[in-house]
Design a binder for these strands. Sequence first.
DNA 1: TGTACATCAGTGAACGCGCGTTCACTGATGTAC
DNA 2: TGTACATCAGTGAACGCGCGTTCACTGATGTAC
Lengths: 228, 228
Amino acid sequence: MSPTRRERVRAETIDEIKETARMQISKNGAAALSLRGIAAEMGMTAPALYRYFDSRDDLVTALIVDAYKSLAAALAASQETEEESHDKRIMASACAYRAWALTHRAEYSLIFGTPIPNYHAPVGITGPAAAQSLIELIRVLDAVYQDGLLTLNELSPALIKMLEPWVEKLGYTGPLSVIQLALTNWAKIHGLVSLELNGHLSDVPEEVNIGSFFEKEICSLVERMLTD
Amino acid sequence: MSPTRRERVRAETIDEIKETARMQISKNGAAALSLRGIAAEMGMTAPALYRYFDSRDDLVTALIVDAYKSLAAALAASQETEEESHDKRIMASACAYRAWALTHRAEYSLIFGTPIPNYHAPVGITGPAAAQSLIELIRVLDAVYQDGLLTLNELSPALIKMLEPWVEKLGYTGPLSVIQLALTNWAKIHGLVSLELNGHLSDVPEEVNIGSFFEKEICSLVERMLTD
DNA sequence: TGTACATCAGTGAACGCGCGTTCACTGATGTAC
DNA sequence: TGTACATCAGTGAACGCGCGTTCACTGATGTAC
């Protein structure tokens, strides 16, 4: 059955609440998120929000899950291309990661920023959502691996022990080494983006310049991963 | 003239305030730092703190400057060794960075975490302090460069434009390419450390395993920077 | 199409809390003679 | 060595503020006959 008018309006209001929350986060930081602030911005009173979320923590959880989904979707979208060459595809996913971070600062800080004081993510909800976006990074590398073009590493016992939990978490059955490459690849991209977003790479954030820095760096990163 | 008793006690109290603040930050996050909380922990009342700091922001600024100094000192200390080989020295500075982050979580989140809501760092104070720790990273690479063993990159005009402001900021007169390598080197280390500290690399933080992951990664990073 | 009732969205007042900061004060520590 | 005074550390009450959350309520929207 199709949604009633009331259900539709309700869904729209939920979206508006989330959107307003994101705006507030990107302006003042995730730690300063407040129901009263959201309500005020929406021209409502704070108790009204309890019609839509059981508590502030509930809202935060929803925002975090949304953020992971959004990132995963952005990464997936970057691979929907005719492009065949692996290096360009890897490059595309890395740039998509950065672009997403730059255009979704609220979501980025929810996921990768300092945890919100007095908020504790419910176990089992946020974990799988997090895995989802990492899977997208793995998918790209797995394609390279399937073509036999990925430079695999020997793994020490300690490393294997660390990587094994990821197998189940990601549901990826390929070699551990692919997971390892995905993680280090991710870490490098993340390091650049994280420094850039927090203003550590430049006083005046002229994104164009940092973009070229990012691209050059990812470029040489990719070269080193491919064998040929 | 040597400090009076009162001056000595005063300095000790300031240290205790800062130390208590750091404990509070590492427990609840930098955003939840509160003068009242610090005072309570010290068995004092909040207004007493105004004898030592003009405001909460003043305290935060002091903590940030201290943090940068502490990081710079840790990096510098890692180079005080008889060791001559460049790769081991680079490795040592990278590991010192990670070790510092793991043992100084409060300081780390002050510097690299999400900015504290409603706090604005005074210009001119925090910037130079930040440069100080990056200089330590450059020093290590510069030594390699002086021995002609550093793989330098060609720099695009856009990249040069982005790197130039750093010259003055760091007071480093060597080639821009060394700065570029230091920045990307830093970003990679930072990415790994940042993900590790925020629990994105492992659910159960078994630091030993992640340590081996880190070392392997930095190791191959170093190999690629050296020519020979 | 009209009426009676149930469901739901949103209000406004109130709760207890912790926050940064001010102010007038008390008592202890240091200094000058 | 003793006294008078200045300096400083810390207190306790109070300020205004914003927070999450509860509660009883009003009106509007939907549903059943």
